[in-house]
Write a protein that binds this DNA or RNA. Structure first.
Lengths: 156, 156
DNA sequence: ATTTTATTATTAACATGTTATGTAAATTGA
DNA sequence: TCAATTTACATAACATGTTAATAATAAAAT
């Protein structure tokens, strides 16, 4: 039987936002335990990963890359700073900017956790299938693209 | 060029959890404004939708259907109760259970908001394509299924 | 019948999501 | 130059996410 597309709200536990939320939660369930063992939230881990890819990012850039809003990021960095996993310095060129970097302890923690994350990701890829996973990425990207271009039209 | 599957962590702003998060946020951006106009969070709206589909659910069942944890749900219901959008009564058969229903005001609010949600969902379906959307649902379901069956194995 | 265990729900405590507001520094424009 | 605007960041306030602890009731076990 075909879903009730275009007529009424989908049986709501199968709505698009819910389907995306469930999928995300299912995936995260695989990654979170190894983070919790190291007292990291998934958001804190995102920040550490971003800084591992490139040191010395300002908070706005970090927010873009980690998909975090600035108020959250502000608190997260304060927390990581307290635990001496990151350091904050001030931009010479622009005194508004904070520049964030991993400390040695932060880099060490990244290296400790990363292998387990890679392993779990590979396990998902294997179970689900590489081709399907790539297809899923493409569909998600296209969905975002289509919605955002629509957004642009409605925002004029 | 092919992604770095099976070697290291994906360029992390393109990781699977991030892709799912971004997609969900993109979708929600279309629905949230009409909810905010009526002072509802997306979670509160989920509860109202679930109760519109079936009245008199207990909190555990509501949590399953809305994909909310009980502590969140506890607060959400307290809030909606205060605004007289839902009512709580007690199960005769089991004194531990609260039974939640929409009030008339709650039903009225649902009827007020639902059309706009349907419209926005149809717009997304149209933009993205019905076939692709169905394919996306299937992939997400299958992803969850594969991950959860793996979870079962690891939990033994 | 009484102890034990499981279930339902709440509360506490802390991190994050989200909107609004504030502040300082940079940029733009007249 | 200097007033107006924009940008980068922080804080406030409240809702939610998440784990742990607690209380009350129900069900199971002995």
């Amino acid at each position: 039987m075909v879903a009730t597309a275009g007529k009424e709200l989908r049986g709501f536990s199968r709505s698009l936002p819910m389907a995306l939320l469930r999928a995300r939660e299912a995936v995260m369930k695989k990654f979170i335990p190894s983070l919790r063992e190291n007292d990291l939230s998934s958001q804190q881990w995102r920040v550490i990963r971003a800084l591992n890819e490139e040191q010395g990012l300002d908070i706005t850039e970090l927010g873009d890359r980690c998909f975090l809003l600035m108020p959250s990021l502000s608190r997260i960095i304060r927390n990581l700073e307290k635990r001496i996993l990151v350091t904050r310095s001030h931009s010479e060129a622009d005194n508004r900017r904070s520049v964030i970097s991993l400390t040695l302890a932060g880099e060490k923690l990244f290296k400790k956790i990363a292998p387990a994350s890679v392993e779990r990701y590979n396990l998902i890829t294997e179970k689900f299938g590489y081709g399907k996973l790539e297809l899923l990425y493409e569909l998600l990207d296209e969905l975002i693209e289509k919605i955002d271009e629509d957004q642009a039209v409605n925002t004029r």
